[in-house]
Design a protein around this nucleic acid. Structure first.
Lengths: 241, 241
DNA sequence: ACAAAAGTGTTGGTGTTACACCCATGG
DNA sequence: CCATGGGTGTAACACCAACACTTTTGT
């Protein structure tokens, strides 16, 4: 960072926004949902957009991300990570010449939240909504692009990281887990029996021996993610698919 | 991004810096190098740091990254991608209370450049240097962290993406390619014969049938990366290791 | 008894690992 | 003719996809 002070060179001044792609897997109705909010001011007033906020004094990027999240849903049982930073000029219409040349930069975050948290808000105001990923309307700014990017990341993360266990309940059946993967990656992403064998062979799923019945049929075992059993293998390249 | 206008809430104002982790593989001496520059002003004056700059008016993040790059080396034959954005408060000492609360955010980029480009600069001033990754001195700001992050990314990219071919010469031997991988990933990352078979089976390496001799021993075939043969498979999950 | 849900087993095929071996050239 | 650098082959094994099958429950 050098500030060579030749006559005409001026540094840009930025406001920094944090926009989040918040996913939620609805296991009851087999849907992958993403959270959108309706803009209440210009630009793009009344257009759907990703939930976001501008970073305040003394606030970190991640805090800002958590702040908007917590305004919408309980911030428990979630996975959050930084996605990408979009910072080109002219990506925000507010960057008009008459606004003293202030630029708007957006640091995007990607989150996966538990359905239990999420559906608290399902009946909420008209300003906030969960859309199925395949049915999201056109979004404000470059948010369509950010959403695509986040969706890709979600699919990759699911294949290589244990993020599913951040949003499943403490105890879950292997069919729940399989279904979560199916909803995100598409049906036939893998044979159930092979999926099951692979996961169990990795050794971090603990059979609680507690049984749970879902109508007719053999009751399923409830499993638990054992972070202590996962710790030693966390740095190896694992594939969960 | 909502600008709720309650009394005391103030948005932070940012300068945005772009810092790059620039790697270069020296095939002649089996070293992985990273570019560092000596700071010529406060803060951290005379400390080594990653090459960076503050974003100017009308300039995109990537342009800024290319700008510093091009000051140091020819920006041909390189791979560049965004790494991570560090934006917490207090990461930059310039954020003192008397500087009107301006925050410094850093968008980091990661680059791999060809050795041919890089060594043009090897004899340069005392302000710029290539260090072996394992011997980099402590860096200014949080640049040690950024370097670590970039090194990780380099290793991952090499395993899953054809970035090596961006920095190898047009024609190269399979041993050159293997050596490049060895330097970055460490010796014994894979058996040579297996590495070779895997790469050839992927089908995008074109044998030019031109032979080249390296002292005694059988001459090696020169290969060429065929981007047209790679295109159809680029979206599949490939492993090059 | 039967259908539904969960869980187990089998089999052919493919990929990977760790080597040993063969080929072409310079000195 | 042999050391050197380059290239090929292969046996054992692990893994994986696909599918059939068994077990346990509710009605």
């Amino acid at each position: 960072m050098n500030t060579s002070s030749q006559g005409e060179i001026k540094l840009a001044n930025f406001k920094v926004g944090v926009d989040s792609v918040i996913f939620c897997v609805d296991l009851e109705r087999n849907r992958l949902l993403v959270l959108v909010v309706k803009r209440i001011e210009e630009p793009f007033v009344n257009t759907w957009s990703l939930p976001g906020t501008l970073v305040r004094e003394g606030e970190s990027l991640e805090s800002a991300a958590y702040r908007i999240l917590s305004e919408k849903i309980p911030v428990k049982n979630l996975y959050l990570e930084q996605l990408y930073t979009f910072g080109g000029p002219h990506r925000d219409p507010r960057e008009s010449p008459d606004s003293y040349g202030v630029r708007y930069l957006s640091v995007s975050y990607f989150a996966l939240v538990s359905y239990a948290s999420a559906h608290l808000l399902l009946e909420n105001s008209k300003q906030v909504a969960w859309y199925e990923v395949s049915k999201v309307p056109p979004l404000a700014f470059d948010h369509d692009q950010i959403l695509d990017y986040g969706y890709q990341r979600l699919k990759n993360k699911l294949a290589y990281s244990p993020i599913a266990f951040d949003v499943l309940p403490e105890l879950f059946t292997l069919h729940d887990l399989y279904q979560l993967y199916e909803i995100v990656l598409g049906a036939n992403f893998s044979d159930y029996s092979n999926f099951r064998n692979r996961l169990l062979k990795l050794g971090f799923l603990q059979n609680s021996k507690i049984k749970i019945s879902k109508g007719a049929g053999r009751p399923a075992n409830l499993y638990r993610f054992s972070s202590s059993a996962f710790a030693p293998i966390k740095d190896y390249p694992l594939v969960f698919i």
